[in-house]
């Protein structure tokens, strides 16, 4: 019996009759994506988040008012659909709806950019520390510990003093803090992945360390990392709100959800809409990210299969 005959006996009708047809495989990422699409909360969250992001991007076309124009006739006016001040106006007479959307731009941008910075630094740093281990690992992770012990606010104020108030400083400050946890997570995952036999097989095959990290380590630590990213984005948005609340965030007339909420909170009793609308947007966004993170964790969990 030839090999093909034996295979035919083992797996009848599995494409042997059409030997030229290649069978397309389904990768673990594709599998995870399918599972994620079956999670209703995650899908709804993705749609909502997409809508909010689109609204932020196309903000100038969605409202007849610019975000920094003061309307003296409408100081602190409640929501009114007749004159298209859908969310009312703030205490300076600016349209709240467009300001919420511009706030979304800043908040989401801070969220994604700071997370992106932390992702790139954290994954590289953690993978190198975990992979090489030993003394390198010890040194690199002790540095992370030292960075952890720096008070965050002190760090931000220091940056502000040295470089002046600038929105990009917020990205840097947040990214510089968030990558620490990312590096720890990636290092921990790398420690377990580098002991896997496929990494040893790559060693035996003479693959260089750099290629082992890129081909074998990083793709296999990305699961938990992606879940952590979905938790980092809201955390960063919240931290930015906190900084803005303290007056260290973005500068007027530009705004962010944090600034809007902090202003709204002051006038909560006389003009509640100033607090309610930005708070709804922030809360919905945070919930969305958390649901997506939840869904991703379930979808990516290898124990599922």
């Amino acid at each position: 019996m030839t090999r093909t005959d034996r295979l035919e006996a083992m797996m009848p009708g599995l494409g042997i009759t059409q030997p030229d047809r290649e069978i397309k495989g389904r990768s673990l990422w594709q599998d995870a994506w399918r599972r994620l699409l079956q999670n209703k909360a995650a899908v709804v969250s993705m749609v909502l988040l997409g809508i909010i992001a689109l609204m932020a991007i196309f903000a100038p076309w969605l409202s007849p008012y610019p975000y920094d124009e003061i309307y003296w006739d409408y100081i602190q006016a409640p929501p009114n659909f007749d004159n298209a001040h859908w969310f009312g106006t703030d205490s300076n007479g600016r349209d709240l709806f467009i300001r919420v959307l511009y706030g979304a731009r800043v908040s989401l941008m801070v969220g994604f950019l700071a997370t992106g910075v932390s992702l790139i630094i954290g994954v590289t740093y953690g993978a190198i520390a975990g992979y090489f281990g030993g003394r390198i690992d010890n040194l690199m992770m002790r540095f992370v510990d030292i960075m952890y012990s720096l008070p965050f606010m002190f760090f931000v104020i220091l940056l502000m003093v040295v470089f002046g108030r600038n929105i990009f400083l917020i990205f840097i400050a947040l990214g510089a803090v968030e990558w620490l946890t990312m590096a720890r997570i990636v290092r921990g995952q790398t420690l377990s992945v580098k002991r896997k036999e496929y990494v040893e097989a790559a060693h035996a095959g003479g693959v260089s360390n750099f290629k082992i990290i890129v081909r074998h380590i990083i793709p296999n630590v990305l699961g938990p990392v992606i879940v952590y990213v979905t938790l980092t984005v809201p955390q960063v948005i919240l931290t930015e709100s906190f900084l803005s609340f303290l007056g260290l965030g973005v500068q007027e007339p530009l705004t962010s959800w944090g600034v809007l909420i902090s202003e709204g909170a002051k006038l909560m009793e006389v003009a509640p809409w100033l607090l309610i609308y930005p708070a709804i947007f922030l809360a919905v966004t945070l919930f969305c990210f958390n649901f997506i993170g939840d869904g991703l964790r379930d979808a990516l969990d290898p124990k599922d299969r």
Binding site: L28, E200, A201, A204, P219, N220
Partner: peptide, 18 residues
Amino acid sequence: MQIIFQDPLASLNPRRTI
């Protein structure tokens, strides 16, 4: 010189095609 491992699945990177 090459090596074949005990656990067949663990010796293959799950993220790459065969």
